[in-house]
Write a protein that binds this DNA or RNA. Sequence first.
DNA 1: TGCATAATTTATAACGTTTTAAGTAGTGGG
DNA 2: CCCACTACTTAAAACGTTATAAATTATGCA
Lengths: 340, 340
Amino acid sequence: MRQPKNKRPTQRTIAEKAGVSVGAVSRALANDPMMAEETRRLVHRIAQDLGYVPDRAAQRLRTGRTNVIGLILPPHDEILEFGTSIVRGISEALLDSPYHLVVMPDFSGDGADDTIRRVVRNQLADGVILSRTQPQDARIKYLLEAEFPFVTHGRSELATPHSYVDYDNAQFACHAARMLINSGARKLALLLPVRKFTFASHLQQGFMTAVRESGVAHAVINGVNIDSDAKLLESELRTLLTQEDAPDGLVLPGETSGIAALAAIQDLGLVPGKDVRIVVKQTAGIFDSIRPRTPSIGENLLEAGQLMAQLLLRQIAGEPAADLQYVQPAIIDERYIVNP
Amino acid sequence: MRQPKNKRPTQRTIAEKAGVSVGAVSRALANDPMMAEETRRLVHRIAQDLGYVPDRAAQRLRTGRTNVIGLILPPHDEILEFGTSIVRGISEALLDSPYHLVVMPDFSGDGADDTIRRVVRNQLADGVILSRTQPQDARIKYLLEAEFPFVTHGRSELATPHSYVDYDNAQFACHAARMLINSGARKLALLLPVRKFTFASHLQQGFMTAVRESGVAHAVINGVNIDSDAKLLESELRTLLTQEDAPDGLVLPGETSGIAALAAIQDLGLVPGKDVRIVVKQTAGIFDSIRPRTPSIGENLLEAGQLMAQLLLRQIAGEPAADLQYVQPAIIDERYIVNP
DNA sequence: TGCATAATTTATAACGTTTTAAGTAGTGGG
DNA sequence: CCCACTACTTAAAACGTTATAAATTATGCA
């Protein structure tokens, strides 16, 4: 059907032009120290002139390395907040590496993930990045078992250490709760995903720390389908806010839930920041422009993406996974600093 | 460093077990009709048993096809709205095809794009998808010249037809302007990107149609850096709204600009929907939860992604690009239907 | 039975790279 | 002048697949 007008140059082309063997060209290009400086330079020059670029498929076939990093994208609408910055972060970190980012959407259910099995068995990538970890994450177990390089966004509670980048959700929830209490809220609620992600227990733990130290009586932890779209969240929040002993302070671990909460509060005729106070985790950065203004605590997902890519590359290069762990601090807005 | 505990099976393994040649296995697996039904089934069964999966690198080296679709992601924060749904749409459409999606961030400037050159010359993909087209888009010219399969999000004004999926921005802008006029606005403004994207002129054209037919005197078309983050947009909008003859009706081609506009309006002590009316293009779907409620017109980016992937696959299969074009209608909210 | 023809299958050659083992020079020492 | 050694280079094999041409077996028909 289609074919390139002039076949692109191979090492063979260079070899003929330079009057050396293909093997020599290969090593010269790889900067093998066994190579005479003179021929090395000659080969490089000719390669440059011809616009030679190595054939990925051949390299991959020969070496077994794919030069691909896989990103397992979670299902549902959560990626609205999550995916964009992460994808950008990873892409940027991979820019001057020989690696490409391949996005692999994960439509499988809870269990050991089909997508990941496919990647490992089909050698689709040299390493993967996955998110939304659970305490006993079957995917992580599988990857550890298979000795396949990976980095997660979020920790697990497995015995074997693995590489991860996580956000300090405990710190976030603790600080958020304190902010609410200090500004007068007395009946707190924390919104959590219904599924048992590791970060949920961190949120809970941080939240309870603040609650206990302040002696606030009413504190509920509410599981909602936090990954669902804003409309569904809205209605769940309306229910929460109209029941008996409805909270007057909400800790919201995401911008979508923040926006949904503001909608629910206002739709009920209540005043955000007065009748119901909220603190939101700002992930995508748009929340600063939402009115009425409400306090938020930031999470740098772009950086998270960059970090995960870097950690993964180092792991592929051979560093032990146990050394490749990072917890991002919560980014606390100066305007809302509270004394602990 | 790492090596699979038990080497994965190849066609050779199957061939030995089945007592046939490798070539036979290859054709049996490809369901070549030249193959006896009996051996075909035998080979398939053994392959199944061994958990055989073909080696992508070898296939690629041999056939020259990469089985990769490249998505050229635009720079800046625009992807917040754009990227997520598009990525999901493409991924979904590719699910039961042999193709993978590779995300390629594009950090180059305006001119003929480095990223695209790299993809074409290095055979990094069998086809690419790119967005934010310009009337005389250098990237498109290059791809046409190279006869490389591609689909764009947005049209161009080049003589040679190419495959695209576009949103009917003229219809959007026209209808949005009518809605504003019908609800009482008399000084309209349309927000446009400063860079000359094709969709900008469609917006302008639709906008002017509505303006002319209504005889509204004040209608400005305002170029802003629509891709910048919400904060910057806010300040640009504050400027617009405080100048002499400030508009009382805004057509906003995106959720980010919609949110920024609401912030700017309210920060100036004005009432959205009364002092200044707005109509927003809803792309990511979150805008429905923004308060105060304002009318919006939808764009289905998930579908756009799916369509682009489908068109690209058909093009790679050999269909002429001129037949692979699609314009998505504006999704008009029933609640705000206006008579033309 | 013999022979052309069809129906399968096989052997072989690529694809472009890396790597291993085997070379060939060039150098210095005896 | 030969040997051993270093310094570089090459020839050849391999990675797993597909495609081409050749070979084998089966089938049909006289």
